[in-house]
Nucleic acid binder design. Structure first.
Lengths: 334, 334
DNA sequence: AAGCAGCATTTTATCGATAATATGACGGCG
DNA sequence: CGCCGTCATATTATCGATAAAATGCTGCTT
């Protein structure tokens, strides 16, 4: 491997001069500069980023740590990447499998050394565990958990989104709306916050909250959503609307409804959450709560960028606003 | 930041002993070991991976470099991650935006230093550009490009997959099958290889190949697939089947057909390629060519693992077999 | 009792770049 | 003509861990 010292010898200068040419730190005379550049080209030299990182403490790389590379996270990652690259940094993704252990590992001193900053999508860690994380590295947390004040945090207006979706289906005639993938377990905040929004909408409309309408799923996959809804259908519990806690689960619900001969939106209205790309295309179009991925990405990257630039003021806790995108799966749609 | 030397001082030993305890390289007496471990715990020490990387030339990290984090690549990444983790290594994803420039950068000496090996999904680079890459790092190429012999490479049986899907639709009555997202441009091998398979199926059945049936798309997105198919429908060109070059495009086709009042599979049969998770759930179920993601992942990781273990034999070029998964979007389905 | 094998631990040198500091050449000024 | 400031470049020390070599101790052999 060709080192800076090799380039220096080739150009008849010191390593430091090569460094100065490449990093434009101290001025270098034009003839010298040209000789160095020629030597770099001749030898095909490229800087050793590991060595630079060790000495200079900078990697020009940001990590986005997500539970899985799939679906929602893949989409948001593609929104975040250009924003990071616009600052001349790289974005890399790491995966936690939604386990607290892996999330903790991602925040360990050891892993953080590789990055100038980290965007962490928190799913498994609770407030106490996060409170134990002591690191000087810029971090922005994403996701629907409760986090200590000192972390910058961007989350969605879960309750409001669920309320909007549910109220919309009520307005168009649904009276017995399942909360598919929701839960009473407050530890899982995404699905319990969204359940609370669903309850609000029911109460606001003077409808009863029936605990049997809260249908948990074993995992946040389409397959689990489909299975859970098929079970409900088999049980004979009547319903005329489904609020699915995510679009991925809503897709499973679409499959279950189609298999069971229930028509959307005539027999059952359906709404999801996240407004994934797919929601536009799955017939008859999936009504979904849109959290403005790009806005979330910009906010999160903005907070991170500020920290990486050395800002040390108090952390911010942003709740990203949501809106309902109405499509054919509910009766207000086209 | 607490260093190994700090731990050594705390435990009353040399840094080398700490290193030996943590890495289990040379044996260390139990009492000493215990003192070191206590000091590690007391100070909350964690190894500096950058320093280790510089000295030992090892990162225990593998990069998967993909065009985008979306859809197909997100799914395959989630298959690859556990295999890499099983060897005690980390997987990180990098993104190239499908540009040759970014792909080249990912293969640059500079970026490679961060990783013990790289899985690169080639989309933009051609054979000549790849031939210029000189690096001793283990690399496995994925994807449908033509690559120099010296690289390990895993690709799919594109032609065969397209042939299977098309033949299946012919068998069930389609006579005018569009090749949506395919192209005559042989530079883009995925879409031209799949077009060739489509042609084979037509010829085998004694049908004419009509160039108007090859419908290009502007990008490999559902939106572009939908738009392209809507244009065909508006043009009045008759067709009774669609082979979509990917499931993502097929999803766009489903939307276009639904909007146009064409019934799947009664009026038009439809088949995709990739067998994404989504294909099972989108009504009426998307018939798709399955490339066995897990098998591809295992093959690719196996080739990479072998190189990382020091094997230097000739590179392998694996063509992963495919099979057709029949669902409701074609008339052979349920 | 001298010598040596075997083991635990320490010392030294190094990975490659760069921040901080030092050196040296040249021009301007009194 | 001698002193000083300025600018370009070189030297030195360091980031933190580890491979390889050196040290030193114990106990065994003859």
């Amino acid at each position: 491997m060709v080192r800076m010292a090799d380039v220096a010898r080739e150009a008849g200068v010191s390593a430091m001069t090569v460094s100065n040419v490449l990093n434009e730190r101290l001025p270098v005379n034009e003839p010298t500069r040209a000789r160095v550049m020629a030597a770099v080209a001749a030898l095909g030299y490229e800087v050793n980023l590991t060595a630079r990182n060790l000495r200079a403490g900078r990697t020009d790389t940001v990590a986005l740590v997500v539970p899985s590379f799939h679906d929602y996270f893949g989409e948001i990652a593609d929104k975040i990447a250009p924003l990071i690259e616009a600052d001349g940094r790289h974005l890399v993704l790491e995966r936690t499998s939604a386990s607290a252990e892996h999330e903790m590992a991602a925040l360990s001193v050891a892993r953080l050394q590789f990055y100038d900053g980290v965007l962490l999508s928190v799913v498994g860690l609770d407030r106490d565990q996060l409170d134990r994380v002591r690191t000087p590295k810029p971090i922005v947390l994403l996701g629907e958990r409760d986090v200590p004040d000192r972390f910058n945090h961007v989350r969605l207006a879960n309750e409001e989104g669920a309320r909007l979706a549910t109220a919309h289906m009520i307005e168009h005639g649904s009276r017995r709306i399942l909360a598919l993938g929701c839960t009473f377990d407050t530890a899982h905040m995404m699905s319990s916050d969204r359940r609370i929004g669903w309850e609000h909408a029911l109460r606001d409309a003077g409808l009863d909250v029936d605990a049997r309408h809260v249908v948990p799923v074993s995992t946040y996959t389409s397959a689990a959503g489909r299975d859970a809804l098929l079970d409900v259908i088999a049980s004979g519990l009547p319903f005329d609307g489904v609020f699915a806690v995510t679009d991925v689960i809503a897709l499973g619900a679409i499959a279950a409804l189609a298999e069971s001969g229930l028509r959307v939106p005539v027999d059952v209205q359906l709404a999801g959450f996240d407004n994934l790309d797919m929601a536009r295309f799955v017939p008859p179009g999936l009504t979904s709560v849109d959290a403005n991925h790009e806005g979330v990405a910009e906010t999160a990257v903005g907070l991170l960028r500020r920290q990486m630039a050395g800002w040390t003021g108090p952390a911010e806790h942003v709740v990203a606003p949501v809106r309902l995108v109405v499509r054919g799966s509910t009766r207000g749609g086209a």
